[in-house]
Design a protein around this nucleic acid. Sequence first.
DNA 1: ACCACCCAGTAGACAGTGTCTACGGCGGGG
DNA 2: CCCCGCCGTAGACACTGTCTACTGGGTGGT
Lengths: 202, 202
Amino acid sequence: MSTSDGNLRARLVAVGVDLLSREGTRALSLREIARQAGVSHGAPRRHFPTHQALLAAIAREGYHQLGQQVAEFIRTAPPDPYAQLLGLGRLYLDFARTNRGMFELMFRHDLLRGNGIGLREASGALFGVLVDLVLAARAEAADARPASVTAGALWANLHGIAELWQWGSLQTTVRTEDVETLLRAALDAHLGPAKATRTRAT
Amino acid sequence: MSTSDGNLRARLVAVGVDLLSREGTRALSLREIARQAGVSHGAPRRHFPTHQALLAAIAREGYHQLGQQVAEFIRTAPPDPYAQLLGLGRLYLDFARTNRGMFELMFRHDLLRGNGIGLREASGALFGVLVDLVLAARAEAADARPASVTAGALWANLHGIAELWQWGSLQTTVRTEDVETLLRAALDAHLGPAKATRTRAT
DNA sequence: ACCACCCAGTAGACAGTGTCTACGGCGGGG
DNA sequence: CCCCGCCGTAGACACTGTCTACTGGGTGGT
């Protein structure tokens, strides 16, 4: 069995990911993870100094999964950078919607205090992809701002849509249960309305 | 008056707000709030059926404070709707930065399950102000999308900036420790670059 | 005036949590 | 061979949220 052999550390993370997807964030107690892994409650302490460190490792696995999905999408995507950005936005929002607990865990504030060094790096790599795409997508229309600023604002927009939609406010205030509308609005806003015509191509 | 003689309810919320601003979200345990209020740990149960209900009441107080700040700003603001939106964005980001724990509490997912009905309403009122301002700000430039969509996307952008900046990723990936740059980018993007010239006016 | 009643607050119990410490067994290197 | 470091176990400790029994005091009804 690939899960039972050898490293308990990897098995704890795997059990945490599975438990996080089945039950919510609430079920991710240290003792419950150890229970599901079939070890005593003190065992995780040999591999993770604290509970937050284990949660950070699980969140890191989430960034790994998201990064793999992004890489897989980029590999099998049309060469048009705007279409790539649209698909990337859909991927981000779909990831947030499908893996609710994981998305919530990945951006918890208390996880990068001390032991979450890898989290900023993981998100930074994903952000680099976004910067490159933004740079390519708005190459024709000259923009005064650096691409990192536009990419940052765009990422913030995507993240805000995911966050507010998950929180439930957008479902009642804005009539759109379609996140797609907000995604289009954000893309068109940050990349310029000239690119909006390509939206129909997808 | 059931609320006046039982002023413990209001005192619990006040103690929670104070405790939340001094220590973090971690300190907001039911027993600690009761301790700071000078009552036994079972006393809050007479006014709030569960711990989450008390937290929801504290978050509601946060929405109240934010709403008062917004109303105060609108009252003493220049009539230019774009300048009002800029100030409103600054106000939102400043509120998120100044009252970290409160902002985190106000958008916690588990608080509107069951007892958080008032939270969506409180945020909905603030959103209405935003929709009106967006409607007025882009009156000249005709936009195909309804104002609620633009306002929703803009709010999501503001919220995402606050969230990602608090999380810390924007501080390392984007070199700007200035949230102002991202705020300007978001406003110019969603309201059209034609309005960007007015940015220098403030 | 009296008495019953309700109600806010107290105190204790219970299960569950994260962290710490002492202990056991097991395998590899001196 | 022995000894030591590693890894998992078991129990304790101080917490937490929730539930239940209990008490004190004020109010309303008769």
